[in-house]
Design a binder for these strands. Sequence first.
DNA 1: TCCACGACATCAGTATTGCTTATCTCGGTA
DNA 2: TACCGAGATAAGCAATACTGATGTCGTGGA
Lengths: 290, 290
Amino acid sequence: MDPHLLRTFVTVAGTRSFSAAAQELGYTQSAVSQQIAALESDLGATLLHRRPVALTDAGARLLEHAGPILLRLSAARADVVRLSGEPAATVVLGATPFAGSTRVAAVLASVQRAMPRVRFTLLLTGRDAVAAGVATGTLDVGLVDGVTAPSDPLPLPDAGQLATSVLVENTAVVAFPAGHPFAGRRSLGLADLADATWIDAPDVATPLPQLRALAHSGGFRDGFCYPGTDTAGLLALVAAGAGLALLPGPVTHPGVVGVAVTLPRLVHRVELVHGSLTPPARVLAEAFRP
Amino acid sequence: MDPHLLRTFVTVAGTRSFSAAAQELGYTQSAVSQQIAALESDLGATLLHRRPVALTDAGARLLEHAGPILLRLSAARADVVRLSGEPAATVVLGATPFAGSTRVAAVLASVQRAMPRVRFTLLLTGRDAVAAGVATGTLDVGLVDGVTAPSDPLPLPDAGQLATSVLVENTAVVAFPAGHPFAGRRSLGLADLADATWIDAPDVATPLPQLRALAHSGGFRDGFCYPGTDTAGLLALVAAGAGLALLPGPVTHPGVVGVAVTLPRLVHRVELVHGSLTPPARVLAEAFRP
DNA sequence: TCCACGACATCAGTATTGCTTATCTCGGTA
DNA sequence: TACCGAGATAAGCAATACTGATGTCGTGGA
């Protein structure tokens, strides 16, 4: 199971086309066809239905493994390369939107002042992209925020070998439009809201599948998908009544009211995540710790 | 980073010899030398010192990644092959020694009676071997036991995609030789025993590194290494005063007394672990659930 | 119903890769 | 200093994995 074959398999599955995958990867269509055939004969199973291209059960199963494997492979490469490269004069900090708040800016500014020769960059993206970036070395340090049970770590994509430490914990709140029947409450249980409409904003708010897991129940249907990473945009949607969202408190946005979740006990947390640190990246990471 | 190269790298690191690794893998020494050279030039780093062969820092880092990657790779293969293979007429159950207790035998016997055409096998080994076996398809179903905090799952090697479910929880006890000053107590805290001598029996009792993590402290020096998987043998060592061990209660062995651990709160737990199940394996798995 | 077109499969040819055998080089040791 | 063991290097050859051309199948339009 050559990683090359795995990569073209993932691409074909993603584009649902051999030709498109070939173009994307810089191969001929013929090569892609042969690679998939090789994979299938190696595993002794049909991975894709043809015309139209669709995953078989076996293919779907393989796809679940392929992503993490490829991620880890490049994490390994990045990890080794980082060790042997010359000390970088640049540090890239990746953060999820709510994690990249005022304190981040203050810390970055002070560290920048302490090390004027180093070039710092702040990149705001989704949770998974931060974790993957840290694993593959695109990012030196990551800040990820999310909602979980007090004793659990934040769920991150499996890239292995990532050190995490808790930076901030505060209350998790559900964001309601002002005037919503629940908006006046002081606290609430998640299960009461299983029938409500939620905004599916996996990169800013709590992803819906995780929400269901936290509440130990189904429901939580999504009325609106928000793939962006802008917090104000999400809150505007909430204010407009497009749906609810589980967020870090306190919420300060006109027309939006945050109500703390008390059942189950939940916290919003910001975690610092990194692999092996270059010296300037280490300074930055230390600066974040209390 | 071809998995083949990774595999020979792991073998070379393990044997600390190019020639021995070549023999073990069925290559010539020349091939191994070229493979390592290819890996090093690909990553742009020296992975091994030569004469004598030893890991560089970069090599050590790569080695940490290589194991999990190779494991996941074969887990992926096994997972796909299992889906497309014909229904097997054989089920292999792997279990750690304390997990494979009386109830296991009873369940196996009754399932065997229900499906006389199917050939069942019970294999007792270490924790990691059970998890790896289930991931790679050598085992259909695994039973793993161990000690953790009540809210945490048992720590298993990262093979991804393994479903686990809790079967039994009971108290965790420290096994003392009769006459030990602590042997008369009704309960105790782990930290009190950080200075005691422990038996390092990673496949039967709680591994020492995990013990340190549970107690949030150092210490726990090992007086004796017990790599076997026989429970009676371990208890005999405890009775002889070779050291202590953290085990599932209750302990019934002449000369050994078990005292429950109450600080931190710990439980001994047996977990069922499996990948995708063949029909007869599913029946077996269901039979274990309460 | 038939044809044309789009999309994947197959085939032949070739460049590359990755092995083996043979030989060389280096470091430790008597 | 000479030898021996162990890894590096070189040349040759077989297997692999591309490209380009052609074949086959399903679909949509006339």
